[in-house]
């Protein structure tokens, strides 16, 4: 187990390096530079380039990024908060916190609501309840996050005035409601659909027939024998979900005016604030990679057939 995790961490560092390289290449390919503006004189730009080392060859710049990152130094912002430590912007100004809070709430909701809904639908398959849940989940995965977010905004905040349209820094429960619902609804529905399908799949397996032949109660059959097996595909899905939730959070953050990581990333791209782009990409990628590792370990807990060392890619 320990050696497996070590191996995965080494692979993760490799992956991160490649992601850094891609990001570095792409952000330098964006036309223009952070200091370009109507007021800036060519001399001033040149000075700024020198100051931040942008005049050096690209390969040297990249090497500097890597070595600084290895020392835990994420550099300083060039434009948006000129001169401020990027690490400080991301972690101390609460941007990372906000996105994580939002993402984790949505993920937890997806699991805690999605899986039981899927179970209920499978357990009561063919009934009106199953039908209702199927309609809800099918529609749920067809509504884009931003449409749902705006609908909530229009109805709950603008028309009914129950909630504040600006969620701000997510300080109290009420401010969580709209962003978390809009972010998680797609995943709740998807997880519910997935659970239902894999549950029905499991129910048709031979071992369920064996358990039935033993005289096991239907409830136990579903909750014990079928559920644990059907969780396997659901867990597989949770890895990509993390990446998806980051996507969703971009939209949700901009709709509800939450000053989180997603919004900041979009701004940093538009402003060509290189160190911020790089740091955000690396932090979010690391998050996805860690999540994938967690999923693989969770896999092991649910399915004894998988030994971590030889899981098929």
């Amino acid at each position: 187990m320990a050696s497996y995790i070590l191996k995965r961490i080494l692979a993760a560092i490799g992956t991160l390096l490649i992601i850094m390289a891609i990001t570095f290449f792409l952000m330098n390919a964006i036309p223009g530079n952070p200091f370009l503006s109507e007021k800036a004189s060519p001399q001033a730009i040149e000075l700024a380039f020198k100051k931040y080392g942008l005049d050096k060859p690209l390969i040297v710049q990249f090497r500097n990024y890597v070595s600084n990152y290895l020392h835990g130094d994420l550099g300083v912002s060039l434009k948006m908060q000129e001169g401020t430590d990027v690490a400080k912007i991301l972690f101390q100004q609460g941007k990372f916190d906000l996105s994580i809070k939002l993402g984790i709430s949505a993920l937890v909701l997806a699991v805690l609501i999605g899986i039981p809904l899927g179970c209920i639908a499978a357990y009561r398959r063919g009934t009106w309840l199953d039908g209702l849940l199927r309609v809800m989940t099918t529609v749920g995965v067809a509504i884009p996050t931003f449409v749902l977010a705006t609908l909530l905004l229009a109805v709950l905040a603008v028309q009914l005035r129950w909630l504040d349209p600006k969620s701000g820094s997510l300080t109290d429960f009420r401010s969580f409601i709209m962003p978390v619902i809009s972010l998680s609804s797609y995943y709740i529905c998807y997880v519910a659909k997935l659970t239902r399908t894999s549950m029905l799949d499991a129910i048709n397996q031979d071992y369920i027939r064996t358990a039935r032949a033993k005289g096991v109660k239907t409830r136990v059959l579903v909750l014990k024998h079928a559920l644990r097996n059907s969780l396997i595909p659901v867990i597989t899905y949770l890895g990509p979900v993390t990446a998806g939730i980051i996507t969703g959070s971009f939209v949700v953050e901009s709709t509800f005016q939450i000053p989180g990581l997603g919004k900041y990333f979009v701004q940093s791209v538009l402003n060509r604030d290189y160190p911020v782009i790089m740091a955000t990409t690396v932090v979010l990628s690391a998050l996805v990679i860690v999540m994938n590792l967690v999923v693989d370990i969770a896999y092991r807990l649910v399915d004894p057939r998988i030994t971590l060392t030889n899981r098929e890619g």
């Binding site: 397996q205 064996t210 032949a213 096991v216 097996n229």
Partner: peptide, 24 residues
Amino acid sequence: MRQFRGNKVSMIFQNPMTCLNPVY
């Protein structure tokens, strides 16, 4: 019927590879 199954009458099946629950 449930109480009868496995108690008075029980059954074994063709494919032992798939008839046991893999996760227990």
